[in-house]
Amino acid sequence: MSQNPSPPGEPEIAGIASAFADPRRARVLMALADGRALPAGRLAEEAGVSASTISNHLAVLLNHELVAVEQQGRHRYYRLATSEVEGVLEALARLAPRAPITSLRAHTRAHAIRAARTCYRHLAGQAGVDLFQRFVGVGWITGGDGLHRPETAGDRLSASGKGEQYRLAPEGARSLEAWGISPKLLSTVRPLRYCIDWTEQAHHLGGPLGTAITDRLFDLGWIVRDKVPRSVNVTVEGEAGLVALMPSS
């Protein structure tokens, strides 16, 4: 007669947290947080270490299953193992103090990340917040005004965004379907997922709909990836397209 397996114990948070704790490994993870796979040489540049040193850090991340590696020809490319890793990075970013900017490179990177970036594969930064507020302004999304209110329960920076009950309005669903978004993602009943943007202290659209809209923006060339990892640029065509897509609020 077989015995019942022992129930799992509590999560070993300290062990995996140590992998995030090293600033060089944190920079590697942030460089991979836009979903792309990058070679070790590029990650060494992002971390500010030598090629031999980056191998040790990548080994730690692989051991904790935070990154995955794939072979393409003679090169090995690394990517985040799961979307949950990116979620941890975003949560830590909302809680962490801001590092002082002491160089032109750091200023350039900080500006790019704040202007427009990807978060969980959806649009964030000023561009993401502005897009969300456009949706609210034209009445495509209802239930809130897109602003972060730290005094409201569930709208804390450490949360993923639970203080508001945003919903897609029928007009928004019709317009987004005509724009090319799958109707399966356009429920007007289910609350929409959103994130509290850590640079803007405001809300941007998240979840499957946020991802689908961002994918569509990439497909149309309305946004393009920048050299700074995770950052994107809104193109001239994108600015004009968004104005044409949504009537004035």
Rank of each mutant, 00 (worst) to 15 (best):
A91V: 01
A91F: 04
A110E: 06
R114F: 02
E90Q: 10
L89I: 03
V88K: 06
R121V: 05
P97G: 01
S103N: 06
E84P: 01
T118P: 02
E84I: 05
T108C: 11
A112N: 09
T82P: 04
A116H: 04
R121H: 12
R94H: 09
R105E: 12
I101E: 00
G87M: 01
L89N: 02
R98C: 06
R117E: 00
L92V: 04
T118A: 12
R114A: 08
A93W: 01
R94W: 03
A93D: 11
E84A: 15
R94C: 07
R121I: 06
R117H: 13
G87R: 05
A115R: 15
A115G: 05
T108M: 13
A91H: 10
I113F: 14
A93Y: 02
A99S: 12
H107D: 11
A115E: 13
R105D: 11
R105V: 12
G87S: 06
A116F: 03
A112G: 03
H111V: 11
R109Y: 06
T102K: 12
S103Y: 08
T102R: 14
P100A: 14
A116R: 00
V85A: 01
A96E: 08
R117P: 00
A106K: 13
V85W: 02
G87H: 03
R105T: 11
R105Q: 13
I113T: 11
A115H: 10
T82C: 07
S83M: 10
S103W: 07
R121F: 09
Y120R: 15
T82V: 02
A115M: 11
P100M: 06
T118R: 13
E90I: 07
T102S: 13
Y120V: 08
I113Q: 15
C119W: 05
E90F: 01
L95S: 10
I101R: 11
A112V: 03
S103M: 06
E90K: 00
A96G: 02
A91I: 00
A91P: 00
R121K: 14
H107L: 14
G87F: 01
A110C: 06
L89H: 01
A110Q: 08
L104I: 11
L104F: 10
V88P: 00
